[in-house]
Simulated assay, not measured.
Amino acid sequence: MTRRSAPAAAVSLLTAGLLALTGCGTTVAGAGNAREPSAPSATPSVDYAAQAAAAVARHDKLFPEIAARCAGQGAPAAAGTPGAAGTPGTRPTDPEAGKYAENHAYKQQAELSPGARCRGDAHAARIRAAMTGSSGGKGAPHTVDELRALLMGLGYGFDSGGVYGSGAVNVSFVLSVPESGPCVSGRLGPPVSVRAHGVYVEGGCLEPRGGH
């Protein structure tokens, strides 16, 4: 009886030893080894009002005379509100007029805050004076190249726009006021025309082509 039981006991001991050796290099999932999943980090909110104020401050350093003129015009808007030209946010009651407004909705522009309107009008007046030669500069431009050089000399770029035309024919420009906006568009004429406006609802200062 003892001889027959010995092999079985040896097998049991050998099996137990193998399990013990295997366990030394094995990590067993359990309460002692599991890690609590880290909580997802919260996405910080963007302070658009602070960004707009910082942009206006950078603008004011570039154009101190316009900053002085528009001081006290209220806090800058974080974003414009799309609206139809003339009466933003209204819709004609006449069916035909309503259809026309719908077909030309792509031409809608963002509404300007009082501060943006003041800056835009001041820049428009500054550019108009240079384009007509009344600001005491080198004289009025007559070609695309002359107008581009004049605007760049005044401190304007064309990241959102450009100067367009063929020679001295139909010369016009579109630009965004550096750092803060808004848009300023104009043409040599005659007569010279320069105006400030908000960005188009489809984006950018250049009037989009489209509609239906």
Results as ranks from 00 to 15, higher is better:
7 P>R: 02
8 A>K: 15
8 A>P: 02
8 A>G: 15
8 A>F: 09
9 A>N: 06
10 A>I: 10
10 A>P: 03
11 V>A: 15
12 S>Y: 11
12 S>M: 12
12 S>N: 14
13 L>N: 07
14 L>Y: 04
14 L>T: 09
14 L>M: 03
15 T>Q: 14
15 T>S: 15
15 T>D: 13
16 A>L: 15
17 G>R: 00
17 G>F: 02
17 G>W: 00
18 L>C: 09
18 L>W: 13
19 L>H: 00
20 A>H: 07
20 A>E: 10
20 A>M: 11
21 L>I: 09
24 C>V: 11
24 C>W: 09
25 G>R: 01
25 G>E: 06
26 T>S: 05
26 T>V: 12
26 T>K: 01
26 T>P: 02
26 T>D: 03
27 T>L: 14
29 A>S: 06
30 G>M: 04
31 A>L: 05
32 G>C: 10
32 G>F: 15
33 N>D: 07
34 A>P: 03
35 R>E: 01
35 R>C: 07
35 R>G: 13
36 E>I: 01
37 P>I: 13
37 P>A: 09
37 P>G: 06
38 S>D: 11
39 A>V: 05
39 A>E: 12
39 A>T: 08
40 P>G: 01
40 P>T: 01
40 P>K: 01
41 S>I: 00
41 S>Y: 00
42 A>F: 06
42 A>Y: 05
43 T>Q: 00
44 P>W: 05
45 S>I: 11
45 S>F: 08
46 V>G: 00
46 V>M: 01
47 D>F: 03
47 D>L: 02
48 Y>H: 05
48 Y>R: 07
49 A>G: 11
49 A>E: 00
50 A>M: 05
51 Q>E: 13
51 Q>M: 08
51 Q>I: 10
51 Q>N: 08
52 A>C: 11
53 A>M: 04
53 A>L: 09
54 A>P: 07
55 A>C: 10
55 A>D: 13
56 V>K: 11
57 A>W: 05
59 H>N: 09
59 H>R: 14
59 H>M: 14
60 D>A: 15
60 D>K: 06
60 D>W: 02
61 K>H: 10
61 K>P: 04
62 L>K: 03
62 L>Q: 13
64 P>S: 03
64 P>E: 01
65 E>F: 02
65 E>A: 09
65 E>R: 00
66 I>C: 02
67 A>Y: 10
68 A>E: 15
68 A>Y: 12
68 A>W: 10
68 A>T: 15
69 R>F: 00
69 R>L: 06
70 C>Q: 11
71 A>H: 14
72 G>V: 06
72 G>N: 03
73 Q>R: 15
74 G>A: 09
74 G>V: 06
74 G>R: 02
75 A>L: 07
76 P>M: 04
76 P>L: 01
77 A>Q: 15
78 A>G: 15
78 A>T: 08
79 A>H: 12
80 G>W: 01
84 A>P: 04
85 A>G: 05
85 A>C: 04
86 G>E: 08
86 G>R: 03
86 G>H: 03
88 P>L: 04
88 P>S: 08
88 P>F: 04
88 P>N: 07
